[in-house]
Simulated assay, not measured.
Amino acid sequence: MAAFFSLTLVSQEKFENTLTYNDEAGSPEATLECLDFVAGHWQGKAFGGIVEEVWTPPLGGSMMCAFKLVVDSQVQFYELCTLSEENKTLILRLKHFRGDLKGWEEKDETVDFRLVKVEPGKVYFDGFTFEKVSHDEINLYVVLEEKGEKEEMRFNYHRFKGGTSLY
């Protein structure tokens, strides 16, 4: 399991469930073991529609995820994400794509989230937190910024076990 470090080294801004990366503190040592609870097929509600994520189990020092948002039976956007072990810690990377798979970010750019803290059932990246509620439920907390205003948003997911959508 990953090393812990004092909360005094982490700026919490105004949010309850996300932390901000501190360059002086750096990232703690960690492996993908601390995020094995994320592996699976998940569904929830957000942005006026259904959100879906599929996370693979660790393989080759990484986990990958496909995300999509569907509103009124239309895909609004996708994300491709990776959780990777690098330099004895973890990094979360993602890229956004419109419904037609045209990327939002430039070709060689990703949105990167550096690891801040690991505790049992909760893994904090810079502005992005994974929380295990139970075997069949997780929360993802993300700090979103729009027009200079930051907001912490909770995505509540339930494990999808096949058949039709949970929603």
Rank of each mutant, 00 (worst) to 15 (best):
F15D: 07
Y167H: 06
E119C: 02
G40H: 12
I138Y: 07
K68C: 02
F128P: 01
L35A: 12
T129D: 05
Y157T: 13
I91F: 05
A30D: 10
P58A: 09
P120I: 05
T20P: 06
L94V: 04
D108M: 13
F97M: 03
H96T: 01
R114T: 05
V71H: 01
S84H: 07
L140N: 07
L7T: 11
R98Q: 00
L101N: 07
F77T: 02
V75S: 00
L115Y: 00
V143H: 07
Q74L: 07
G148W: 12
S11D: 01
E79K: 01
N22A: 13
S165T: 04
S134Y: 15
F160K: 06
F4R: 09
V111H: 13
S11M: 05
Y124T: 06
E151P: 00
L94M: 08
L166C: 06
E149W: 03
S73Q: 13
G163Q: 05
G61N: 10
N87T: 12
C34P: 10
F97Y: 05
K132F: 08
F125R: 02
R93N: 04
T164H: 01
K45R: 05
E105V: 14
L90N: 04
H135C: 14
L115D: 04
H96G: 01
E24W: 11
N139G: 10
E13W: 01
R114L: 01
K117R: 04
Y21H: 07
V123T: 03
E24S: 15
G40A: 10
F130P: 07
F125Q: 00
G121W: 02
L59T: 14
T110W: 10
P28A: 06
V123L: 03
C81S: 12
E13M: 02
F113R: 15
S6D: 09
L92K: 08
A39H: 14
V70T: 05
F15G: 07
Y124E: 02
Y21K: 01
V75L: 03
F77P: 00
I50K: 15
V70I: 09
E152Q: 13
Q43D: 13
Q43F: 12
E33A: 08
E131H: 07
L69H: 06
E86Q: 09
L80N: 05
E152F: 10
K102A: 01
W42N: 01
V51G: 11
D100V: 00
F67K: 05
V143T: 15
F125C: 03
A39T: 14
T56W: 12
P58I: 12
E85H: 12
L7V: 09
T89A: 11
M63V: 06
K150G: 05
N139H: 11
T110C: 13
P28R: 08
M153K: 12
H158L: 08
T31W: 11
S11E: 00
V143G: 05
K150T: 03
E33D: 10
H41P: 10
K14C: 02
G60W: 11
L83H: 07
